[in-house]
Design a binder for these strands. Structure first.
Length: 269
DNA sequence: ATGGTAGCACGGCTA
């Protein structure tokens, strides 16, 4: 089965581009980020008329995640555990079952974290966006530990807002102090990888220069001034099933595109 | 360079 992740940056503006990509790529399942819509205002027919099932975890104006799937979505859960006061819609889970076995899927939109605010001793300022990002990643690590204990194939996909290595940015020096690339962010990401995950794209494409995001500003796409921040992490059960992983970079050149492009993986499932 | 562009929704935040 083909599974994918796509930060669509607003479902109301992305209808035609999303439909065109779903038709062309025909993923069996895709997690979507930044739907920027509530569950009630999401244009469900756009997805359902194409034969996909849809589960949303929306929020007015910002954030919001969803899963679309040709197979039924089972055991759907919404929200990242660990902080009852966190109202931002950034996490959704579901299970799909095939004749060859089941797959647990996470769709996530990890906080951006900018601007980075540090106190005099270099610690993130409490209540700031960077502190929120790091706290969110700590909660995510705890949730991943619980999911790993299920001992079943697991795919954790989405907009991580993390540039894992210098090779994943056209101009790494421009990102050194940014929340997407500073060492503390990358360490938190690596801690999660070290729980036993395989980063699907890097495993299959060791060469630098592959990106999933180009800013709308300053002609970033035309200059290929991109970063790789959308990732598919697979636990060992799922990594054993990995057959392919690609970025649909050409989507960025389409009509009225998102600033992100889809990334997908083929699993022998 | 404190700009630049885009989305949501109609003012200002988020990225």
């Amino acid at each position: 089965m083909k599974i994918a992740s796509f930060n669509i940056n607003g479902i109301k503006a992305r209808g035609p581009a999303l439909e065109a990509w779903l038709k062309a790529a025909s993923p069996d399942l895709a997690v979507l980020q930044e739907i920027k819509s509530t569950d009630e205002t999401f244009p469900r027919a756009l997805i359902e008329d194409m034969g996909y099932n849809l589960e949303t975890h929306g929020q007015k104006g910002f954030n919001g995640v969803a899963i679309v799937s040709k197979l039924p979505l089972e055991d759907v859960t919404r929200g990242l555990p660990g902080d009852d006061d966190d109202t931002q819609a950034r996490w959704i889970e579901a299970t799909v079952s095939t004749p060859k076995g089941a797959l647990r899927v996470v769709g996530l939109y990890l906080p951006n974290g900018n601007p980075v605010e540090l106190d005099a001793t270099g610690h993130p300022v409490t209540g700031g966006k960077y502190a929120y990002k790091l706290a969110w990643m700590a909660r995510m690590e705890a949730r991943l530990r619980a999911l790993l204990a299920l001992e079943m194939p697991l795919a954790v996909m989405g907009d991580y807002n993390i540039i894992p290595q210098a090779e994943d940015a056209a101009r790494p020096d421009a990102w050194r102090e940014d929340a997407l690339f500073r060492l503390q962010s990358r360490k938190a990401f690596r801690r999660m990888l070290n729980l036993g995950f395989t980063e699907a794209f890097r495993t299959r494409h060791p060469a630098p220069g592959h990106y999933t995001f180009w800013d709308y500003q300053a002609g970033a796409y035309q200059k290929n001034d991109g970063i790789r921040i959308d990732h598919i992490l697979l636990n060992a059960y799922a990594a054993d099933l990995l057959r392919d992983c690609q970025i649909d970079a050409e989507v960025r050149a389409g009509e009225k595109p998102s600033d992100h492009v889809p990334i997908w993986a083929e699993l022998a499932l």
